[in-house]
């Protein structure tokens, strides 16, 4: 028998990872990353960006407009707004990252279980459906009211809010691929459930899950800000973007910088993550090409 020449088919094709990149560098994705990177750097390098303490109260210097000494001005306690914004980004990112990790862990675990086992589907499906009937933010308020305000509790409530979406995404992929021929083939050579799920099936879900998680990240920042605004999130005096806006309500007419700067930061963070999510989705599935803003 003859030996076929190898690679005549498609020498130029790149290897497919579990995630098939159909398109390199979607513009939405690139812009999203470019917007998010400075935010992340800001959070990491906070001590080097500003030498002022975000908590130190300086009554004589209250409500100063932007100047060289205080680029974003000062608030009603005379605290430097730039310092508070910079340290506030740490909170937003901590809540975002923390809830994303927890959402991923629980979402993947429960999603796999409900896609693979019928009995688990009955339970997990009902619970996650019932969580999804509440408007997200209302549910977050209810949870926070029950367990009390703290940064960690914000993470928990965001996770509870967002995990059903990830469960659904993972479950859909598991159901789609559990009957696939390559899974059946792996089963006939003796692969067990664990191998089938985590090596053969789950990587196929990685793309959609990443999209979901980037939206979840944005959601977490928004929910944290909202809860802090209501006084249910990170307790004072810790600088959180949401509580900064809440404090600024009384000074909207006299000190515009107090509300615009944190508002702009929240918008920037949420927008960048949504762009990343949309971009990812388009890169993973060109058929869904949304006519986005870019």
């Amino acid at each position: 028998m003859s030996t076929e020449p190898i690679g005549t088919q498609s020498e130029k094709l790149s290897p497919p990872r579990a995630i098939a990149w159909h398109q390199r560098a979607n513009p939405m994705f690139v812009v999203g990353v470019l917007m998010l990177t400075p935010l992340i750097l800001m959070a990491i390098m906070a001590p080097f960006l500003t030498f002022l303490d975000p908590l130190s109260i300086n009554a004589p210097q209250k409500l100063l407009p932007p100047s060289w000494a205080h680029p974003f001005g000062t608030d009603h306690f005379g605290r430097d707004v730039l310092a508070r914004i910079v340290y506030g980004s740490q909170i937003s990112l901590r809540v975002g990252i923390g809830s994303t990790i927890l959402t991923a862990l629980f979402g993947i675990f429960l999603g796999v279980a409900s896609g693979w086992y019928h009995w688990a589907d009955a339970i997990i499906g009902r619970v996650s459906d019932s969580l999804m009937i509440f408007p997200g933010f209302v549910l977050a308020i209810m949870i926070m009211a029950a367990i009390g305000p703290s940064e960690f509790n914000v993470i928990i409530s965001v996770t509870v809010l967002y995990v059903p979406r990830v469960i659904r995404t993972v479950r859909a992929s598991v159901i789609e691929f559990r009957g696939a021929e390559f899974v059946e083939a792996a089963r006939t050579v003796g692969a067990g459930d664990f191998r089938l799920l985590f090596l053969h099936i789950l990587p196929k879900a990685a793309g959609p899950v990443m999209v979901q998680l980037s939206f979840g990240f944005a959601w977490a920042i928004l929910v944290e800000a909202g809860l802090s605004f209501l006084g249910l999130g990170t307790p004072p005096p810790t600088p959180s973007w949401g509580s900064m806006i809440a404090d600024a309500r009384d000074f909207i007419r006299s000190a515009w910088w107090l509300i615009t700067v944190p508002g702009f930061m929240i918008t920037l963070a949420v927008l960048s993550l949504n762009l990343i999510g949309d971009g990812l989705r388009d890169m993973l599935d060109p058929r869904l090409q949304s006519k986005g803003i870019l």
Partner: peptide
């Protein structure tokens, strides 16, 4: 009897 090899790639 078999034809050896594979169908060539039109791009190449």
């Amino acid at each position: 009897p078999a034809i050896p090899g594979t169908v060539p790639n039109l791009a190449d």
